[in-house]
Design a protein around this nucleic acid. Structure first.
Lengths: 141, 141
DNA sequence: ACTCTTAGTTAGAACAATTCTAATGTGTTG
DNA sequence: CAACACATTAGAATTGTTCTAACTAAGAGT
């Protein structure tokens, strides 16, 4: 009945972004934005949706992830040539990447300072600076 | 500039790394290491080899690139989810990446300083810190 | 509510980069 | 130079992702 409520937040976000609030966008949005910052791959989110009883095709997961990225609800993180990660934290920040587990963790943007960065070459501008701290070893928490 | 032994340098490197100096490894090594620092993809190197009249299969290019990486003759650079780049500069350094042309450029490691890096999480160690400066726009003069 | 129009979803085919397989060829050692 | 371990190869297989074309649902207007 009251199933409407939990989607309120996502609904607002979608509206603000000018995306039609469809069943699958709402469901995926809820999985992504309810709870803290997340790092997901398309496959992982698809699986998660299935488990949550939401039927969404993998194609839609990819579409949605890209649309969300286009409207800055998500950010793409390139750390692994094998798969693409999407980050619900769209603020300026960096990452730890545990190479053997594929786990990503945020590093606050204002914790880190980079100095000595050369100017962008003629005819180009800096779109973004990514710092990736690659970690080795398991973290069994 | 010794015409006699254009492969001498590569041969030495291969020997030092304990890799058998086969025709294709020598040829690829020459393309990679003669001349300044380079950033190549497997496909690009394969094509280059063909044009230079060296017949190497794509599988061998991939094998060789990985073997060279294993013995630190090359370094892998992850900047683009679509393809893998290999860098002949194995020293500590960072990169400019021109997003629309796919061009990579080195930034000297000692030009840049990063401060405020958090400690690696329990049970892990820092394997490497990558700084990628993503550029937008074409550079042509 | 009903219908139009347009945008969104879908299954499966297509794709591109990379890896694998199993057959053949080559460098090195004794 | 024989013998074996290691390399190379073509092509098939695999993987993550994108495309296609048919279907479905959302929002506007009535």
């Amino acid at each position: 009945m009251d199933q409407d409520r939990p989607f309120a937040q996502t609904l607002t976000r979608l509206r603000a972004a000018g995306l039609r609030p469809t069943r699958q966008r709402l469901a995926l949005g809820r999985l992504l934005f309810d709870g803290g910052d997340r790092h997901v791959t398309a496959e992982a989110l698809h699986e998660e949706a299935q488990k949550a009883g939401v039927s969404v095709s993998l194609a839609t997961v990819y579409n949605t992830l890209h649309q969300f990225t286009d409207v800055q609800l998500l950010r793409e993180v390139v750390v692994d040539s094998a798969r693409t990660y999407f980050d619900t934290n769209t603020s300026d920040h960096h990452h730890f990447f545990v190479e053997n587990s594929g786990k990503l963790m945020d590093i606050d943007g204002d914790k880190i300072a980079i100095s000595g960065l050369p100017d962008a070459p003629e005819g180009t501008g800096i779109a973004r600076v990514d710092v990736i701290v690659r970690l080795q070893g398991d973290l069994r928490s």
